[in-house]
Amino acid sequence: MSITTVDRNPLIDAPAATPRRPRVLFVGAAFGAAASVLLVAAELAVYLQVRGQLASAGDATFPEGVVLPLTPGSMGMVTLAMSAVTISWAVYALRNDDRPNAYVAVGLTLLLGVAFINSTVYLYQQLDMAVTASPAGTLLYIVTATHLLMVVVGMMFIAVMGFQALGGQLTGRDAEGMSAAALYWFAIIVIYVVIWYGIYITK
Protein backbone atom coordinates (compact mmCIF):
# COMPACT_ATOMS: atom_id res chain seq x y z
CA MET A 1 0.00 0.00 0.00
CA SER A 2 1.43 3.29 -1.02
CA ILE A 3 0.83 6.50 0.67
CA THR A 4 0.26 9.47 -1.58
CA THR A 5 0.93 12.90 -0.29
CA VAL A 6 -0.76 16.00 -1.58
CA ASP A 7 1.04 19.28 -1.59
CA ARG A 8 -1.06 21.88 0.09
CA ASN A 9 -0.43 25.55 0.03
CA PRO A 10 -1.47 26.71 3.48
CA LEU A 11 -2.15 30.22 2.20
CA ILE A 12 -4.58 28.98 -0.44
CA ASP A 13 -6.13 25.93 1.12
CA ALA A 14 -6.60 27.25 4.63
CA PRO A 15 -10.21 27.95 5.51
CA ALA A 16 -11.25 31.54 5.10
CA ALA A 17 -10.89 33.64 8.20
CA THR A 18 -14.11 34.41 9.94
CA PRO A 19 -15.15 38.03 9.45
CA ARG A 20 -13.93 40.36 12.16
CA ARG A 21 -16.57 40.82 14.76
CA PRO A 22 -17.77 44.35 15.34
CA ARG A 23 -16.56 44.97 18.88
CA VAL A 24 -19.44 47.32 19.59
CA LEU A 25 -19.69 46.77 23.33
CA PHE A 26 -15.95 46.90 23.84
CA VAL A 27 -15.55 50.18 21.96
CA GLY A 28 -18.59 51.69 23.68
CA ALA A 29 -17.24 50.64 27.08
CA ALA A 30 -13.89 52.24 26.22
CA PHE A 31 -15.62 55.54 25.46
CA GLY A 32 -17.74 55.26 28.60
CA ALA A 33 -14.65 54.54 30.67
CA ALA A 34 -12.86 57.56 29.16
CA ALA A 35 -15.78 59.83 30.02
CA SER A 36 -15.98 58.47 33.58
CA VAL A 37 -12.24 58.88 34.14
CA LEU A 38 -12.36 62.47 32.91
CA LEU A 39 -15.28 63.23 35.24
CA VAL A 40 -13.35 62.04 38.29
CA ALA A 41 -10.07 63.55 37.07
CA ALA A 42 -11.66 66.98 36.68
CA GLU A 43 -13.09 66.81 40.20
CA LEU A 44 -9.73 65.68 41.55
CA ALA A 45 -8.01 68.57 39.74
CA VAL A 46 -10.29 71.05 41.50
CA TYR A 47 -9.61 69.36 44.85
CA LEU A 48 -5.84 69.54 44.32
CA GLN A 49 -6.12 73.16 43.23
CA VAL A 50 -8.07 74.13 46.35
CA ARG A 51 -5.71 72.17 48.57
CA GLY A 52 -2.69 73.84 46.96
CA GLN A 53 -4.12 77.29 47.45
CA LEU A 54 -4.92 76.55 51.09
CA ALA A 55 -1.37 75.28 51.60
CA SER A 56 0.20 78.32 49.96
CA ALA A 57 -1.88 80.55 52.26
CA GLY A 58 -0.59 78.56 55.25
CA ASP A 59 -4.00 77.07 56.05
CA ALA A 60 -4.79 73.44 56.83
CA THR A 61 -6.68 71.40 54.23
CA PHE A 62 -9.29 70.16 56.67
CA PRO A 63 -10.78 71.66 59.84
CA GLU A 64 -8.82 71.33 63.06
CA GLY A 65 -8.93 67.84 64.54
CA VAL A 66 -9.71 66.11 61.26
CA VAL A 67 -6.98 63.70 60.16
CA LEU A 68 -7.14 61.92 56.80
CA PRO A 69 -6.32 58.27 57.61
CA LEU A 70 -3.99 56.45 55.24
CA THR A 71 -4.86 52.84 56.06
CA PRO A 72 -8.41 52.54 54.60
CA GLY A 73 -7.30 54.26 51.37
CA SER A 74 -4.33 51.91 51.03
CA MET A 75 -6.53 48.91 51.82
CA GLY A 76 -8.82 50.07 49.01
CA MET A 77 -5.81 50.24 46.70
CA VAL A 78 -4.73 46.70 47.58
CA THR A 79 -8.30 45.46 47.18
CA LEU A 80 -8.66 46.96 43.72
CA ALA A 81 -5.20 45.67 42.71
CA MET A 82 -6.35 42.15 43.64
CA SER A 83 -9.55 42.67 41.67
CA ALA A 84 -7.43 43.48 38.59
CA VAL A 85 -6.11 39.92 38.81
CA THR A 86 -9.53 38.33 39.32
CA ILE A 87 -11.21 40.21 36.44
CA SER A 88 -8.32 39.24 34.13
CA TRP A 89 -8.81 35.66 35.33
CA ALA A 90 -12.51 35.87 34.45
CA VAL A 91 -11.80 37.08 30.91
CA TYR A 92 -9.07 34.47 30.39
CA ALA A 93 -11.28 31.66 31.66
CA LEU A 94 -14.23 32.66 29.48
CA ARG A 95 -12.04 32.91 26.40
CA ASN A 96 -10.89 29.35 27.08
CA ASP A 97 -14.43 28.09 27.67
CA ASP A 98 -13.55 27.38 31.28
CA ARG A 99 -16.83 28.51 32.74
CA PRO A 100 -16.47 27.19 36.31
CA ASN A 101 -13.27 29.21 36.72
CA ALA A 102 -14.94 32.21 35.14
CA TYR A 103 -17.81 32.08 37.65
CA VAL A 104 -15.37 31.92 40.55
CA ALA A 105 -13.36 34.85 39.17
CA VAL A 106 -16.46 36.98 38.57
CA GLY A 107 -17.70 36.20 42.09
CA LEU A 108 -14.35 37.14 43.61
CA THR A 109 -14.23 40.39 41.63
CA LEU A 110 -17.67 41.36 42.90
CA LEU A 111 -16.64 40.41 46.43
CA LEU A 112 -13.56 42.62 46.18
CA GLY A 113 -15.74 45.43 44.84
CA VAL A 114 -17.93 45.16 47.94
CA ALA A 115 -14.79 45.12 50.09
CA PHE A 116 -13.61 48.32 48.42
CA ILE A 117 -16.94 50.02 49.11
CA ASN A 118 -16.64 48.83 52.70
CA SER A 119 -13.14 50.30 53.05
CA THR A 120 -14.30 53.67 51.70
CA VAL A 121 -17.28 53.76 54.06
CA TYR A 122 -14.91 52.88 56.91
CA LEU A 123 -12.70 55.78 55.80
CA TYR A 124 -15.68 58.13 56.00
CA GLN A 125 -16.40 56.88 59.54
CA GLN A 126 -12.80 57.37 60.63
CA LEU A 127 -12.66 60.79 59.04
CA ASP A 128 -15.74 61.89 61.02
CA MET A 129 -16.07 65.13 59.05
CA ALA A 130 -19.28 66.90 58.07
CA VAL A 131 -19.83 67.44 54.34
CA THR A 132 -20.09 71.16 55.01
CA ALA A 133 -16.93 71.35 57.19
CA SER A 134 -14.75 73.02 54.55
CA PRO A 135 -14.53 73.39 50.76
CA ALA A 136 -11.64 70.91 50.59
CA GLY A 137 -13.59 68.42 52.69
CA THR A 138 -16.61 68.77 50.46
CA LEU A 139 -14.44 68.19 47.41
CA LEU A 140 -12.90 65.10 49.03
CA TYR A 141 -16.38 63.64 49.44
CA ILE A 142 -17.30 64.58 45.85
CA VAL A 143 -14.23 62.89 44.36
CA THR A 144 -14.45 59.70 46.40
CA ALA A 145 -18.24 59.43 46.05
CA THR A 146 -18.05 59.81 42.27
CA HIS A 147 -15.43 57.08 42.22
CA LEU A 148 -17.65 54.89 44.40
CA LEU A 149 -20.44 55.43 41.87
CA MET A 150 -18.05 54.26 39.13
CA VAL A 151 -17.29 51.16 41.20
CA VAL A 152 -20.99 50.38 41.61
CA VAL A 153 -21.58 50.83 37.86
CA GLY A 154 -18.58 48.59 37.13
CA MET A 155 -19.88 45.90 39.50
CA MET A 156 -23.29 46.00 37.83
CA PHE A 157 -21.61 45.71 34.43
CA ILE A 158 -19.56 42.69 35.59
CA ALA A 159 -22.61 41.10 37.24
CA VAL A 160 -24.69 41.43 34.05
CA MET A 161 -21.87 39.92 32.01
CA GLY A 162 -21.54 37.17 34.63
CA PHE A 163 -25.21 36.33 34.23
CA GLN A 164 -24.79 36.31 30.45
CA ALA A 165 -21.92 33.85 30.93
CA LEU A 166 -24.17 31.73 33.15
CA GLY A 167 -26.71 31.76 30.34
CA GLY A 168 -24.06 30.52 27.92
CA GLN A 169 -23.94 33.72 25.88
CA LEU A 170 -20.27 34.53 26.54
CA THR A 171 -18.06 31.72 25.41
CA GLY A 172 -14.76 31.39 23.61
CA ARG A 173 -14.35 34.07 20.97
CA ASP A 174 -17.60 35.72 22.01
CA ALA A 175 -16.40 36.77 25.44
CA GLU A 176 -16.33 40.41 24.33
CA GLY A 177 -18.89 41.48 26.93
CA MET A 178 -16.65 40.39 29.79
CA SER A 179 -13.66 42.06 28.10
CA ALA A 180 -15.68 45.28 27.94
CA ALA A 181 -16.58 45.02 31.63
CA ALA A 182 -12.93 44.31 32.46
CA LEU A 183 -11.85 47.39 30.50
CA TYR A 184 -14.23 49.56 32.50
CA TRP A 185 -12.98 47.95 35.72
CA PHE A 186 -9.36 48.67 34.78
CA ALA A 187 -10.31 52.33 34.22
CA ILE A 188 -11.75 52.35 37.75
CA ILE A 189 -8.48 50.98 39.13
CA VAL A 190 -6.32 53.42 37.15
CA ILE A 191 -8.25 56.46 38.34
CA TYR A 192 -8.11 55.14 41.91
CA VAL A 193 -4.32 54.94 41.68
CA VAL A 194 -4.36 58.68 40.92
CA ILE A 195 -6.83 59.37 43.74
CA TRP A 196 -4.83 57.26 46.18
CA TYR A 197 -1.61 59.07 45.37
CA GLY A 198 -3.13 62.56 45.06
CA ILE A 199 -5.39 62.47 48.11
CA TYR A 200 -4.12 59.88 50.58
CA ILE A 201 -0.35 59.69 49.96
CA THR A 202 0.55 63.33 49.27
CA LYS A 203 -2.22 64.68 51.56
Partner: peptide, 14 residues
Protein backbone atom coordinates in the same frame (compact mmCIF):
# COMPACT_ATOMS: atom_id res chain seq x y z
CA UNK B 1 -16.78 66.50 23.29
CA UNK B 2 -15.97 63.25 25.09
CA UNK B 3 -12.89 65.00 26.46
CA UNK B 4 -14.77 68.22 27.25
CA UNK B 5 -18.31 67.47 28.40
CA UNK B 6 -17.30 65.23 31.37
CA UNK B 7 -15.16 68.11 32.64
CA UNK B 8 -18.18 70.38 32.36
CA UNK B 9 -20.27 67.74 34.16
CA UNK B 10 -17.68 67.65 36.95
CA UNK B 11 -17.94 71.43 37.34
CA UNK B 12 -21.72 71.12 37.53
CA UNK B 13 -21.53 68.36 40.16
CA UNK B 14 -19.17 70.44 42.29
Amino acid sequence: WLLTLPVLAAMLVI
